[in-house]
Simulated assay, not measured.
Amino acid sequence: MPLTSLKILDFSTLLPGPYATMMLSDMGADVLRIESPSRPDLCRHLPPVDERGTSYIHQTLNRSKKSLGLDLKNPEAIELIHRLIADYDIIVEQFRPGVMQRLGLDYNTLKEINPKLIYCSITGYGQTGPKKDKGGHDINYLAIAGLASYTGTPDTGPMPIGFQIADIAGGSMHSVTAILAAVIERSHNGEGQYIDISMTDAAFALNAMTGASALGSGEVPQLANGVLNGGAFYNHYETRDGRYFSVGSIEPQFMTQLCEAIGRPDLVKNGLKYTPESQAPLIEALTEAFKLQDYQHWCEVFENLDACVEPTLNVIEASQHPQLVERKMVVEVPTLGSASVKQIASPIKFSKHTTKYSFTGCEVGHHNDDIIKALGIDDEHYQKMKANGVFGSSSNQIR
């Protein structure tokens, strides 16, 4: 795989960091999670869970990643990290600013041990600024970044989004991009560097079109007043049996097919003028037309048209759609037992490589023995480290 040469220590939990390192792992990177035996990642227990009590979310986000359970408040555990970064020379962490420094695991300390170290910190607000020490979640970052202000309707106000835009499109994707950019630079000059990823910064940057218009013109975007945010026909329309269809027929050739399909070719001109007066008749006609027929009828109508109209599917339906089936977007990933779990596949297709998924997310410390052996630590010393609580108390040590 393209990233087989990369070895990453992953100190992150929940979603942004783990999704980023999952992407890197899917592309071949060797990812070792450093996990607390006493304070497990909350994603391990998010429902629904399997018969072992392990969340399917955790099993996907942490597939193919090894796990080393360490008590980072133990000085010997810190010494182990110092030894590991000679080989695992990329770090991803997601603590609040200052936490890794208090542990003696900050970039400035570790780069003295390995100058080639690439160190990526993912936080809600970044390492600087008045909010850097505050907690937050996806909804907060989207609010601060301005994205939520024009997502919704005047009746509802800003609406919660069903998936994590700031966490994934902001934190995860930008982290992967930055890490790989730093790897390329290191290949030229032999030097690592520090990467500061703010999910709020990244979410603000996602205002790609609306933000460009607003900053250039000084006009504040409003709820449901644009072409793409509910101010025009571009929307979801309910069928007679309570299902929905997405309509995105912006270009003239698509608009023509749409209007002909609903029996209103006279409205093509309305669809191409983005004023409230022009859009209102088209929106009304689409609303009425879709409600006259069931979901299956409209599936058959638009199946053979190129009108940018598609059914609004649930996730299970999406996984079974011929397009995603053909693209092999659902895979069976083995657990470390005898079973396997269906998971969403990596969406990246390489001509020279086929993605391999080694195993689903494993138990905390599952690879302790292997990692310690690889570091050349003999069994007597290993047992002493266990007794000293390096891997947690005796009650929560996996091995």
Score class of each variant (00 low, 15 high):
S121F: 08
T123E: 06
T128G: 06
D133P: 01
K131D: 06
I122M: 04
H137S: 09
S149K: 13
D133S: 14
K131G: 00
K132W: 04
G126T: 00
G126I: 01
Y125A: 10
Y141W: 10
T128D: 10
G129N: 12
K131N: 08
S149F: 12
I144K: 15
C120K: 00
G146E: 01
G135E: 07
T123Q: 10
H137D: 08
G129C: 09
K134H: 09
K134A: 09
A143V: 08
D133A: 11
L147Y: 05
L142Q: 02
A148T: 08
D133R: 09
Y141H: 04
G136W: 04
A143I: 10
A143N: 09
I139K: 15
G135K: 14
A145R: 01
K131I: 03
Q127V: 08
T128Y: 09
G126A: 10
G124Q: 05
A148Q: 11
P130T: 02
P130D: 01
L147G: 05
K132S: 07
G136Y: 06
G126C: 10
S149M: 13
G146N: 04
T128C: 09
T128Q: 13
D133V: 15
G136T: 01
L142I: 00
G136P: 00
S149R: 10
S121L: 11
C120H: 03
C120G: 02
S149T: 11
D138Q: 08
D133Y: 10
A148M: 15
N140E: 04
D133N: 15
K134V: 06
Q127F: 14
K132V: 06
S149G: 12
A148C: 09
G124Y: 03
H137C: 12
G146I: 01
S149N: 12
S149L: 12
G129H: 12
K131Y: 13
G136C: 12
K134T: 06
G146L: 04
Q127P: 06
C120Y: 00
K131Q: 11
Y125T: 02
S149D: 13
A143D: 05
A145H: 03
T123L: 15
I144H: 11
K131E: 07
Y125R: 10
H137P: 04
K132Y: 06
K131P: 00
K132I: 05
D133T: 14
G135T: 07
C120L: 07
Y141K: 04
D138E: 13
Y125G: 04
N140D: 05
P130H: 07
G146D: 06
A143Y: 09
P130G: 01
Y141E: 02
K131R: 14
T123R: 06
G126L: 08
A143K: 13
D138H: 05
